[in-house]
């Protein structure tokens, strides 16, 4: 390592950084003018030309990519400089160019224009960083309850009675005038098992579905009593979105799974296996009200 090496290296690094920030020959010229601390209109272009070419030479010496634009500008400046070396009366008037069209003026005009846009770019940069600090009000979309699924309330005993009456009316019309006596095929506990079986499988069902397969009034009554009994045992619940809407039956979520609803506890042995007619409706009504 020789003594001057570090200095050269530092110089090179410095120039490299500098040249990279020049956005073109005009930028470099503006930099040189600024360094001279003179107005663009009053700048000595001849001197500027010398400095510009020195910079370009440095760029080449440091093996930087010298864009073609720098060389074009260098030649323009050389032209201006060489023209000025002649007394005014001996200066060549380029053919086709109007008298008074001064290449110096053209360059100054270009520099002034570029300078204005460079300043405008700086203003844009200020706006750009300012925008980074501006936060818009962005309220989150509010989670209102979906109107398609309004809150469901538990259906009361009268809702259930209303519903079952509607079902029974169908049979009334169908069975009008006929009197058939047949064996009671169903027991409440059998129906309870059936209903619970379907619900365990599907999770929920409509009230009307419960009676879709019923063939007679006694069967409807039997199924209904089974339903009331299951409600009383807290195995399932009947939900309704609004008064008189379709009742939905589903498994009660906090039901005690260990309890076998089909074989109720000792507190109601009277239901077990008894025929429909003999079940006291009262107990069902009471339980349904809770």
């Amino acid at each position: 390592m020789w003594p001057g090496e570090t200095t050269i290296r530092a110089l090179m690094a410095e120039y490299k950084v500098q040249f990279e920030v020049f956005e073109g020959p005009l930028d470099l010229l503006l930099y040189l003018i600024k360094k001279e601390e003179v107005d663009i209109y009053e700048v000595n272009l001849t001197k500027l030309a010398t400095q510009f070419i020195e910079h370009v030479e440095l760029m080449r010496a440091f093996d930087l990519d010298v864009a073609g634009e720098f060389l074009v500008m260098a030649s323009t400046l050389m032209f201006i400089k060489s023209r000025e070396l002649l007394p005014v009366e001996q200066q060549v008037v380029v053919e086709g160019e109007e008298e008074g069209e001064d290449p110096r003026w053209e360059l100054v005009r270009q520099l002034v224009e570029y300078k204005k846009f460079k300043d405008a770019a700086r203003q844009l940069q200020v706006l750009e960083s300012r925008q980074e600090s501006i936060y818009p009000r962005r309220p989150v979309k509010m989670e209102f309850d979906n109107p398609a699924a309004p809150a469901k309330t538990e259906a009361g005993i009268f809702d259930l009675l209303n519903a079952v009456n509607a079902v029974l009316k169908r049979f009334e019309a169908k069975e009008a005038g006929t009197r058939e006596i047949f064996e009671d095929k169903w027991t409440v506990s059998e129906k309870m098992e059936r209903v619970l079986g379907v619900l365990l499988e599907r999770g929920r069902m409509q009230f009307s579905e419960l009676f879709a397969t019923a063939a007679s009034r006694p069967e409807v009554v039997c199924t209904f009593l089974a339903l009331l009994e299951l409600i009383r045992l807290k195995q399932l619940q009947c939900l309704q979105t609004e008064p008189f809407a379709e009742i939905e039956i589903c498994i009660r979520e906090n039901s005690v799974p260990g309890e076998n609803p089909a074989s109720p506890g000792p507190d109601q042995p009277q239901i077990q296996g008894q025929p429909v007619d003999s079940i006291p409706l009262k107990s069902g009504l009471e339980t349904g009200e809770q």
């Binding site: 209109y41 009053e42 272009l45 001849t46 000025e84 007394p87 110096r104 003026w105 005009r109």
Partner: peptide
């Protein structure tokens, strides 16, 4: 861009 009366040379007496 206002055109100045005459671009300034190093020495007004000489061309350069």
């Amino acid at each position: 861009v206002e055109r100045p009366p005459a671009p300034v040379t190093a020495d007004p007496g000489l061309a350069t």
